[in-house]
């Protein structure tokens, strides 16, 4: 049985996955509303033949999405909205309801607010937000109420998933919720700002170096193990 090699192998393939996560985080340092992703390794114990022997392998089998606040950048755009604190914007997509933190919206040809991929932004009641075309100034208050020339016309609906674990990611900085969502209590929004990515490059680079060195360590171990087996074969086969 060549357990040492197999254990190292699980570690190496896990590290390759972690490297992919780091590369993805770094590639998205400039993505509006992106959320940093982490990898969690867990021990995977395989029972051995005897009473006291068992073998533990490292398995990267869960991921973690960090929901810390990203930096706010001033853009002065009328429909550039940033969420302060908890909550997500609701988008209507052909695949159903999606959540996002990327608050860059624009009216479409019909005057409804959409995101950059053309998905409709929903208000607190779950309906699309129609912007009056003849409005001279559009102002949003801190709780997400839009008003045109002083007349309120819609309120942006912020929600959060009831079960935070039920959220998975989809392309386009979207999140898919498997369970129910609930409105956020006292939403806080800012007009004219966009929330950047919450990836901090420093820890990512540190993690990257860490992963790279750990990978090299694993490779050395494989090399030693190979030599050891070679020695065993040479010595015993003499």
């Amino acid at each position: 049985m060549d357990n040492a090699t197999y254990v190292t192998l699980t570690r190496l393939s896990g590290l390759k996955r972690e490297m992919q996560v780091i590369a993805h985080n770094i590639a998205n340092t400039s993505t509006t509303g992106y959320r940093r992703e982490g990898m969690v390794f867990s021990e995977f114990v395989v029972g051995g033949r005897g009473q006291d022997t068992s073998l533990s392998m490292a398995l990267g089998n869960t991921r973690q999405t960090y929901q810390t606040q990203g930096e706010l950048t001033q853009t002065n755009g009328n429909f550039d909205l940033a969420i302060e604190g908890d909550g997500f914007f609701q988008l209507e997509t052909p695949q159903g309801l999606r959540l996002t933190r990327a608050g860059m919206f624009t009216p479409n040809a019909a005057g409804e607010l959409v995101n950059m991929d053309g998905h409709l932004l929903l208000d607190a009641g779950g309906a699309p937000i129609f912007v009056p075309p003849d409005a001279r100034s559009i102002v949003m208050s801190g709780d997400g109420t839009f008003s045109a020339d002083g007349q309120p016309f819609a309120q942006v609906g912020l929600v959060q998933p009831v079960d935070p674990v039920s959220v998975t990611r989809a392309a386009g900085t979207l999140f898919v919720v498997d369970g129910d969502v609930e409105p956020v209590f006292q939403p806080r929004l800012r007009q004219g700002f966009l929330e950047g990515s919450n990836v901090d490059p420093m820890p990512e680079i540190a993690r990257m170096i860490d992963v790279q060195r750990a990978y090299e360590q694993g490779q050395r171990l494989l090399e030693r193990e190979d030599e050891r087996i070679k020695n065993v074969i040479q010595t015993l086969g003499r």
């Binding site: 996955r17 992919q20 993805h24 400039s30 089998n61 869960t62 674990v165 998975t168």
Partner: peptide
Amino acid sequence: LPTGIQLGLGVRPAAVSMQIQ
């Protein structure tokens, strides 16, 4: 598994938008 594993594949340009000001 509470969260599973999803590995992202990078970034794409979504839009180059005008800042109407």
